[in-house]
Write a protein that binds this DNA or RNA. Structure first.
Length: 326
DNA sequence: TTGTGTTTTATTGCCTCC
DNA sequence: GGAGGCAATAAAACACAA
């Protein structure tokens, strides 16, 4: 519980010691000291000004909640002096007036502060404090709104991401299928050539292909694989950004040919395509990384709150744990 | 009526700007 | 150096369930 019951007497001492600056007379108590000469409290002209507004709203609420019985005169005055100082809430009308003023401009210039204080029969410092607290409340609400906007934006991005991942899996399977077909084709071609030339080599076709494949041939295979990526530019983005540029079948060929690693671009999914290109061309040396399995891709976080942590840990896993620099 | 959570008013201390 | 803003906090007022 934030509040307490004690401290009323200490309030008075706090009140008396804590005034700051020329506008620091913050409590009605002090207004009483000033009430003989100052128009800012009982029956001021400026109070009339507020009362005009007050009447315009059709309200019948008393202007000062704490002075509902002010017509009792000296008795209440005396009572007021002998009461421990208490915090008083502004009336509904005062708050409405301040709210309207805040809507117009949430910062308070000195002249406006004085005018508002006069109009409302408050101390300028009270007006300043009210604006300060109001700004704080506004900021909190604004933060909540921003959070909601970010969260909904995150949710839609996550949905997109999920869809893209599914699409990626589909395309991956498609590429594998096509690579298998290609491999069979090459195999048939190879065996017919072998029979034609009476070749004696009995090496397993797969290995023979990998071993005998020249650089040009490997790149040809890669080109075929990469052409699959051209089916749609959107689809190719998936390969560019978060998966190896080579299909699994080609990976197998390269790995089986004794090349346990291959040059690849880093996982720069947060970069644009141009940034990625520049990054990989100009900043980074080629590096080696192991073949990635599906399990190497962690799922995105389920919640918006987890995202920041996920982004970083995911990056660390792939960039630091999964790769090794040449 | 009372205990407890929330809101509002006000203070304090620090920072920035002129 | 003084004025004013802000964040953190205290404390009074208020709301409301048990």
């Amino acid at each position: 519980m934030a509040g307490g019951t004690g401290g009323s007497n200490s309030n008075l001492s706090v009140l008396l010691r804590s005034q700051r600056g020329p506008c620091a007379a913050s409590q009605p108590l002090e207004s009483f000291f000033l009430s003989g000469s100052s128009p800012s409290f009982l029956g001021s002209r400026s109070m009339m000004s507020f009362e005009d507004v007050h009447q315009a709203t059709g309200s019948t609420r008393p202007f000062f909640r704490s002075f509902d019985h002010e017509d009792n005169g000296d008795d209440d005055l005396d009572e007021y002096f002998h009461q421990p100082e208490k915090k008083r809430r502004l009336t509904v009308d005062q708050v409405q007036f301040l709210e309207k003023s805040f809507e117009l401009e949430n910062k308070l210039e000195p002249e406006r502060k004085i005018q508002l204080a006069k109009d409302l029969g408050l101390q300028p410092r009270q007006v300043a404090i009210w604006f300060q607290n109001r700004r704080a409340r506004w900021k909190t609400k604004q933060l909540e709104k921003d959070y909601d906007v970010l969260q909904s934006s995150y949710n839609s991005l996550k949905a997109d991401c999920d869809n893209l991942l599914k699409e990626k899996e589909k395309l991956k399977a498609e590429v594998n299928l096509l690579n298998d077909k290609l491999f069979l084709k090459e195999k048939e071609k190879g065996s017919s050539e072998l029979s034609d030339k009476d070749a004696l080599s009995q090496e397993p076709p797969k290995r023979a292909m990998a071993d005998s494949a020249s650089e040009g041939e490997v790149s040809k295979i890669s080109t075929v694989a990469c052409k699959q990526e051209d089916i749609s530019s959107a689809k190719s983005d998936i390969f560019d950004s978060d998966s190896p540029h080579y299909a699994d079948g080609v990976h197998s060929s390269l790995l089986e040919a004794g090349d346990s690693s291959y040059v690849f671009e880093p996982d720069q999914s947060d970069l644009s395509q141009d940034e990625e290109d520049n990054f990989s061309k100009s900043l980074l040396p080629p590096y080696v990384f192991p073949k990635l399995e599906d399990d190497d891709y962690s799922d995105p976080p389920a919640s918006f709150e987890d995202h920041a942590f996920w982004s970083w840990s995911s990056f660390e896993d792939h960039a630091c744990g999964g790769f090794s620099w040449l």
